[in-house]
Design a protein around this nucleic acid. Sequence first.
DNA 1: GATGCGTGGAG
DNA 2: TCTCCAAGCAT
Length: 350
Amino acid sequence: MREPVTSGTLLAWYDQHARDMPWRVAPQDRARGVMPDPYRIWLSEVMLQQTTVAAVKDYFVKFTNLWPTVADLAAADDPEVMAAWAGLGYYARARNLLKCARVVATEHGGVFPSNRDSLQALPGIGPYTSAAIASIAFDLPETVLDGNVERVMARIHAVETPLPTAKPELMELAQALTPRERAGDYAQAVMDLGATICTPKKPACGICPWRDGCEGHASGFAPELPRKIAKKAKPTRRGVAYVLRNSKGDWLLETRPNKGLLGGMLGWPGSDWTDEPSPAPPVQTSWEPTGIEVRHTFTHFHLILDVMTAQVDTPPDKGVFIPHQSFRPSDLPTVMRKVFDVAKHRFEQN
DNA sequence: GATGCGTGGAG
DNA sequence: TCTCCAAGCAT
Protein backbone atom coordinates (compact mmCIF):
# COMPACT_ATOMS: atom_id res chain seq x y z
CA MET A 1 0.00 0.00 0.00
CA ARG A 2 1.25 3.44 -0.90
CA GLU A 3 1.76 5.84 2.01
CA PRO A 4 0.73 9.47 1.42
CA VAL A 5 2.77 12.48 2.48
CA THR A 6 0.71 13.35 5.55
CA SER A 7 1.44 14.09 9.18
CA GLY A 8 -0.32 10.84 10.09
CA THR A 9 2.11 8.77 8.02
CA LEU A 10 5.08 10.42 9.67
CA LEU A 11 3.66 10.21 13.19
CA ALA A 12 3.13 6.47 12.75
CA TRP A 13 6.77 6.17 11.74
CA TYR A 14 7.85 8.34 14.68
CA ASP A 15 5.97 6.12 17.15
CA GLN A 16 8.28 3.29 16.09
CA HIS A 17 11.53 5.13 15.40
CA ALA A 18 11.74 8.17 17.70
CA ARG A 19 15.33 8.69 18.78
CA ASP A 20 16.15 8.66 22.48
CA MET A 21 17.42 11.98 23.82
CA PRO A 22 17.94 13.16 27.42
CA TRP A 23 15.43 16.02 27.01
CA ARG A 24 12.81 14.15 25.02
CA VAL A 25 9.53 12.63 26.22
CA ALA A 26 8.97 9.44 24.21
CA PRO A 27 5.78 9.47 22.10
CA GLN A 28 4.35 6.59 24.14
CA ASP A 29 4.82 8.54 27.38
CA ARG A 30 3.49 11.70 25.77
CA ALA A 31 0.35 9.75 24.76
CA ARG A 32 -0.17 8.94 28.45
CA GLY A 33 -0.21 12.64 29.26
CA VAL A 34 3.43 13.18 30.27
CA MET A 35 4.47 16.75 29.38
CA PRO A 36 8.08 17.83 28.84
CA ASP A 37 9.73 20.34 31.18
CA PRO A 38 9.76 23.67 29.25
CA TYR A 39 13.10 24.55 30.88
CA ARG A 40 14.72 21.40 29.50
CA ILE A 41 13.15 21.88 26.06
CA TRP A 42 14.35 25.48 25.94
CA LEU A 43 17.87 24.53 27.07
CA SER A 44 18.13 21.71 24.57
CA GLU A 45 16.81 23.81 21.68
CA VAL A 46 19.28 26.62 22.34
CA MET A 47 22.13 24.10 22.51
CA LEU A 48 20.90 22.47 19.30
CA GLN A 49 21.06 25.71 17.29
CA GLN A 50 23.51 24.87 14.48
CA THR A 51 24.82 22.01 16.61
CA THR A 52 24.47 18.24 16.33
CA VAL A 53 22.61 16.06 18.85
CA ALA A 54 25.82 14.10 19.50
CA ALA A 55 27.71 17.26 20.45
CA VAL A 56 24.90 18.53 22.69
CA LYS A 57 24.11 15.46 24.83
CA ASP A 58 26.92 15.69 27.40
CA TYR A 59 26.54 19.45 27.75
CA PHE A 60 22.82 19.09 28.36
CA VAL A 61 23.41 16.54 31.13
CA LYS A 62 26.11 18.72 32.69
CA PHE A 63 23.90 21.83 32.65
CA THR A 64 20.82 20.14 34.09
CA ASN A 65 22.93 18.55 36.85
CA LEU A 66 24.51 21.91 37.74
CA TRP A 67 21.28 23.90 37.32
CA PRO A 68 18.13 21.71 37.51
CA THR A 69 15.70 24.63 37.14
CA VAL A 70 15.60 27.96 35.36
CA ALA A 71 15.77 29.65 38.78
CA ASP A 72 19.04 27.83 39.51
CA LEU A 73 20.48 28.93 36.19
CA ALA A 74 19.31 32.51 36.68
CA ALA A 75 21.17 32.60 40.01
CA ALA A 76 24.43 31.26 38.57
CA ASP A 77 27.55 33.40 38.10
CA ASP A 78 28.37 34.37 34.53
CA PRO A 79 31.90 32.87 34.50
CA GLU A 80 30.60 29.48 35.69
CA VAL A 81 28.05 29.32 32.90
CA MET A 82 30.53 30.46 30.24
CA ALA A 83 33.02 27.84 31.48
CA ALA A 84 30.38 25.12 31.36
CA TRP A 85 29.53 26.12 27.76
CA ALA A 86 33.20 26.14 26.70
CA GLY A 87 33.78 23.93 23.66
CA LEU A 88 30.20 24.01 22.42
CA GLY A 89 30.70 27.12 20.29
CA TYR A 90 28.57 30.14 19.33
CA TYR A 91 29.13 31.68 22.75
CA ALA A 92 26.52 34.41 22.27
CA ARG A 93 24.09 31.56 22.94
CA ALA A 94 25.48 31.16 26.47
CA ARG A 95 25.32 34.90 27.13
CA ASN A 96 21.73 35.04 25.91
CA LEU A 97 20.90 31.85 27.81
CA LEU A 98 21.73 33.60 31.08
CA LYS A 99 19.90 36.77 30.05
CA CYS A 100 16.84 34.71 29.17
CA ALA A 101 16.91 32.71 32.40
CA ARG A 102 17.05 35.93 34.41
CA VAL A 103 14.18 37.51 32.49
CA VAL A 104 12.06 34.39 33.02
CA ALA A 105 12.96 34.35 36.72
CA THR A 106 12.29 38.03 37.37
CA GLU A 107 9.57 38.98 34.87
CA HIS A 108 7.69 35.70 34.42
CA GLY A 109 7.82 34.33 37.96
CA GLY A 110 10.19 31.55 36.96
CA VAL A 111 7.68 30.09 34.48
CA PHE A 112 8.31 30.01 30.73
CA PRO A 113 5.56 31.79 28.78
CA SER A 114 3.38 29.34 26.86
CA ASN A 115 2.76 31.25 23.66
CA ARG A 116 5.01 31.81 20.71
CA ASP A 117 5.14 35.63 20.68
CA SER A 118 6.13 35.88 24.34
CA LEU A 119 8.77 33.20 23.85
CA GLN A 120 10.24 34.95 20.83
CA ALA A 121 10.56 38.19 22.81
CA LEU A 122 13.13 36.47 25.06
CA PRO A 123 16.90 36.76 24.43
CA GLY A 124 18.31 34.06 22.15
CA ILE A 125 14.89 32.80 21.06
CA GLY A 126 14.11 33.41 17.39
CA PRO A 127 11.51 32.12 14.92
CA TYR A 128 12.69 28.52 15.00
CA THR A 129 13.23 28.16 18.75
CA SER A 130 9.94 29.85 19.68
CA ALA A 131 8.05 27.45 17.43
CA ALA A 132 10.00 24.48 18.78
CA ILE A 133 9.28 25.31 22.42
CA ALA A 134 5.62 26.16 21.73
CA SER A 135 5.02 22.89 19.87
CA ILE A 136 7.21 20.48 21.84
CA ALA A 137 6.76 21.83 25.38
CA PHE A 138 3.17 23.10 25.08
CA ASP A 139 1.81 21.05 22.17
CA LEU A 140 0.68 24.16 20.29
CA PRO A 141 0.25 23.77 16.50
CA GLU A 142 3.24 25.95 15.54
CA THR A 143 5.44 25.07 12.57
CA VAL A 144 9.18 24.64 13.01
CA LEU A 145 11.39 25.47 10.05
CA ASP A 146 14.99 24.42 10.60
CA GLY A 147 17.58 23.03 8.21
CA ASN A 148 16.01 19.56 8.39
CA VAL A 149 12.49 20.76 7.61
CA GLU A 150 13.77 22.94 4.77
CA ARG A 151 15.53 19.96 3.23
CA VAL A 152 12.57 17.59 3.64
CA MET A 153 10.08 20.10 2.22
CA ALA A 154 12.35 20.98 -0.71
CA ARG A 155 12.63 17.29 -1.57
CA ILE A 156 9.06 16.08 -1.19
CA HIS A 157 7.83 19.04 -3.26
CA ALA A 158 10.86 19.21 -5.58
CA VAL A 159 11.48 22.89 -4.85
CA GLU A 160 14.28 24.11 -7.12
CA THR A 161 14.52 27.64 -5.74
CA PRO A 162 17.86 27.98 -3.91
CA LEU A 163 18.11 28.88 -0.23
CA PRO A 164 17.73 31.30 1.41
CA THR A 165 15.32 32.66 -1.24
CA ALA A 166 13.17 29.55 -0.89
CA LYS A 167 12.52 30.01 2.84
CA PRO A 168 9.04 31.60 2.64
CA GLU A 169 7.94 29.01 0.08
CA LEU A 170 9.23 26.16 2.24
CA MET A 171 7.54 27.64 5.31
CA GLU A 172 4.16 27.60 3.55
CA LEU A 173 4.64 23.99 2.55
CA ALA A 174 5.66 23.09 6.12
CA GLN A 175 2.66 24.89 7.59
CA ALA A 176 0.28 23.04 5.27
CA LEU A 177 1.51 19.73 6.69
CA THR A 178 1.50 20.68 10.39
CA PRO A 179 -1.29 18.86 12.26
CA ARG A 180 -3.54 20.44 14.90
CA GLU A 181 -2.97 17.43 17.17
CA ARG A 182 0.40 16.10 18.31
CA ALA A 183 2.20 19.13 16.86
CA GLY A 184 5.15 18.56 19.20
CA ASP A 185 5.65 14.94 18.22
CA TYR A 186 5.23 15.91 14.58
CA ALA A 187 7.88 18.66 14.79
CA GLN A 188 10.35 16.23 16.30
CA ALA A 189 9.36 13.59 13.75
CA VAL A 190 10.21 15.78 10.73
CA MET A 191 13.54 16.71 12.28
CA ASP A 192 14.33 13.07 13.12
CA LEU A 193 13.47 12.17 9.53
CA GLY A 194 15.83 14.83 8.22
CA ALA A 195 18.59 13.83 10.61
CA THR A 196 18.46 10.07 10.05
CA ILE A 197 16.86 9.32 6.64
CA CYS A 198 16.43 12.47 4.55
CA THR A 199 20.09 13.37 5.15
CA PRO A 200 22.04 15.99 3.17
CA LYS A 201 24.18 13.34 1.47
CA LYS A 202 23.10 9.87 0.40
CA PRO A 203 19.54 9.98 1.78
CA ALA A 204 18.09 6.57 2.68
CA CYS A 205 15.04 6.89 0.43
CA GLY A 206 14.61 3.10 0.48
CA ILE A 207 13.34 3.19 4.07
CA CYS A 208 11.64 6.61 4.02
CA PRO A 209 8.01 6.64 5.20
CA TRP A 210 7.27 9.51 2.78
CA ARG A 211 9.01 8.04 -0.27
CA ASP A 212 5.82 7.11 -2.13
CA GLY A 213 4.64 10.70 -2.37
CA CYS A 214 8.05 12.37 -2.66
CA GLU A 215 8.38 14.39 -5.88
CA GLY A 216 12.13 14.69 -5.45
CA HIS A 217 12.51 10.93 -5.22
CA ALA A 218 10.20 10.39 -8.20
CA SER A 219 12.25 12.71 -10.38
CA GLY A 220 15.52 11.28 -9.12
CA PHE A 221 17.27 14.41 -7.93
CA ALA A 222 16.22 14.46 -4.27
CA PRO A 223 19.86 14.16 -3.09
CA GLU A 224 20.70 17.47 -4.84
CA LEU A 225 18.00 19.39 -2.96
CA PRO A 226 17.76 21.90 -1.48
CA ARG A 227 19.84 24.06 -3.83
CA LYS A 228 21.95 26.67 -2.11
CA ILE A 229 23.75 29.87 -3.03
CA ALA A 230 27.49 29.23 -3.14
CA LYS A 231 29.34 30.55 -0.11
CA LYS A 232 32.53 32.56 -0.29
CA ALA A 233 35.97 31.28 0.57
CA LYS A 234 37.42 31.81 4.04
CA PRO A 235 40.45 34.11 4.37
CA THR A 236 43.40 33.17 6.59
CA ARG A 237 44.36 35.39 9.51
CA ARG A 238 47.40 35.23 11.77
CA GLY A 239 48.14 36.14 15.35
CA VAL A 240 50.31 35.55 18.41
CA ALA A 241 49.16 34.02 21.71
CA TYR A 242 51.16 34.63 24.89
CA VAL A 243 51.11 31.99 27.62
CA LEU A 244 52.62 33.32 30.82
CA ARG A 245 53.18 31.59 34.17
CA ASN A 246 54.56 33.04 37.38
CA SER A 247 57.00 31.23 39.70
CA LYS A 248 54.05 29.60 41.51
CA GLY A 249 52.89 28.06 38.24
CA ASP A 250 49.74 30.17 37.95
CA TRP A 251 48.44 30.95 34.44
CA LEU A 252 47.82 34.44 33.06
CA LEU A 253 44.39 34.57 31.42
CA GLU A 254 41.96 37.29 30.47
CA THR A 255 38.20 37.40 30.07
CA ARG A 256 37.38 38.54 26.57
CA PRO A 257 34.95 41.45 26.03
CA ASN A 258 31.27 40.50 26.22
CA LYS A 259 30.69 40.74 22.48
CA GLY A 260 32.11 39.52 19.23
CA LEU A 261 34.23 36.43 18.66
CA LEU A 262 34.55 34.24 21.78
CA GLY A 263 32.88 37.06 23.72
CA GLY A 264 32.79 36.52 27.48
CA MET A 265 35.15 33.54 27.31
CA LEU A 266 38.54 33.04 28.97
CA GLY A 267 41.56 33.29 26.69
CA TRP A 268 45.28 33.92 26.48
CA PRO A 269 46.43 37.48 25.92
CA GLY A 270 47.46 38.00 22.34
CA SER A 271 47.87 40.13 19.27
CA ASP A 272 44.98 41.02 17.04
CA TRP A 273 44.05 38.43 14.43
CA THR A 274 44.63 40.03 11.04
CA ASP A 275 46.59 39.74 7.81
CA GLU A 276 49.56 41.42 9.50
CA PRO A 277 49.18 41.05 13.28
CA SER A 278 50.76 43.65 15.53
CA PRO A 279 52.36 42.01 18.60
CA ALA A 280 50.83 42.91 21.97
CA PRO A 281 52.54 40.96 24.77
CA PRO A 282 51.02 41.37 28.26
CA VAL A 283 54.46 42.09 29.80
CA GLN A 284 57.92 43.09 28.60
CA THR A 285 60.08 40.02 28.95
CA SER A 286 62.09 37.60 26.87
CA TRP A 287 59.33 35.63 25.18
CA GLU A 288 60.28 32.18 23.98
CA PRO A 289 58.71 31.02 20.72
CA THR A 290 57.47 27.44 20.87
CA GLY A 291 57.94 27.18 17.14
CA ILE A 292 54.62 25.35 16.94
CA GLU A 293 51.65 26.87 15.13
CA VAL A 294 48.10 26.37 16.28
CA ARG A 295 45.64 26.07 13.42
CA HIS A 296 41.94 26.60 13.92
CA THR A 297 39.01 27.35 11.63
CA PHE A 298 36.13 29.57 12.69
CA THR A 299 32.89 30.12 10.84
CA HIS A 300 34.30 32.77 8.54
CA PHE A 301 38.13 32.56 8.63
CA HIS A 302 41.11 30.28 9.17
CA LEU A 303 43.47 31.23 11.98
CA ILE A 304 47.17 30.43 12.45
CA LEU A 305 48.55 31.34 15.87
CA ASP A 306 52.20 31.49 16.96
CA VAL A 307 52.49 30.44 20.58
CA MET A 308 54.97 32.29 22.84
CA THR A 309 55.72 31.36 26.45
CA ALA A 310 57.49 33.02 29.36
CA GLN A 311 57.80 32.80 33.13
CA VAL A 312 57.93 36.04 35.14
CA ASP A 313 56.41 37.52 38.29
CA THR A 314 56.12 41.12 37.17
CA PRO A 315 52.50 42.35 37.17
CA PRO A 316 51.06 42.11 33.64
CA ASP A 317 49.39 44.93 31.70
CA LYS A 318 46.29 42.84 31.21
CA GLY A 319 44.73 39.63 32.46
CA VAL A 320 44.84 37.95 35.85
CA PHE A 321 46.80 35.00 37.21
CA ILE A 322 44.59 31.95 37.70
CA PRO A 323 45.98 29.61 40.40
CA HIS A 324 47.10 26.39 38.78
CA GLN A 325 44.97 24.35 41.21
CA SER A 326 41.77 25.97 40.00
CA PHE A 327 42.66 26.25 36.32
CA ARG A 328 40.74 23.82 34.10
CA PRO A 329 41.70 23.73 30.41
CA SER A 330 38.15 22.53 29.69
CA ASP A 331 36.91 26.00 30.71
CA LEU A 332 38.58 27.42 27.58
CA PRO A 333 37.09 27.72 24.11
CA THR A 334 38.64 25.16 21.78
CA VAL A 335 41.13 27.42 20.03
CA MET A 336 42.49 28.55 23.42
CA ARG A 337 42.68 24.96 24.63
CA LYS A 338 44.79 24.12 21.56
CA VAL A 339 47.17 26.94 22.54
CA PHE A 340 47.29 25.54 26.07
CA ASP A 341 48.21 22.07 24.80
CA VAL A 342 51.19 23.50 22.92
CA ALA A 343 52.34 25.68 25.83
CA LYS A 344 51.97 22.90 28.38
CA HIS A 345 54.43 20.72 26.48
CA ARG A 346 56.89 23.60 26.41
CA PHE A 347 56.64 24.21 30.17
CA GLU A 348 57.01 20.50 30.88
CA GLN A 349 60.23 20.38 28.84
CA ASN A 350 61.78 23.18 30.95
C1' DG B 1 19.17 41.25 3.39
C1' DA B 2 23.97 40.42 4.53
C1' DT B 3 27.22 39.47 7.89
C1' DG B 4 29.30 37.68 12.20
C1' DC B 5 29.38 34.01 15.08
C1' DG B 6 32.33 27.68 16.85
C1' DT B 7 33.04 23.22 16.67
C1' DG B 8 33.65 18.37 15.44
C1' DG B 9 32.28 14.68 12.41
C1' DA B 10 31.64 12.76 7.82
C1' DG B 11 33.01 11.92 3.24
C1' DT C 1 43.68 17.99 3.59
C1' DC C 2 39.55 20.15 2.35
C1' DT C 3 34.65 21.03 2.03
C1' DC C 4 30.31 20.66 3.84
C1' DC C 5 27.41 21.23 7.32
C1' DA C 6 24.15 20.73 12.23
C1' DA C 7 17.33 21.42 15.75
C1' DG C 8 19.67 29.88 14.09
C1' DC C 9 19.99 34.41 16.27
C1' DA C 10 21.32 39.26 16.59
C1' DT C 11 22.40 43.26 14.37
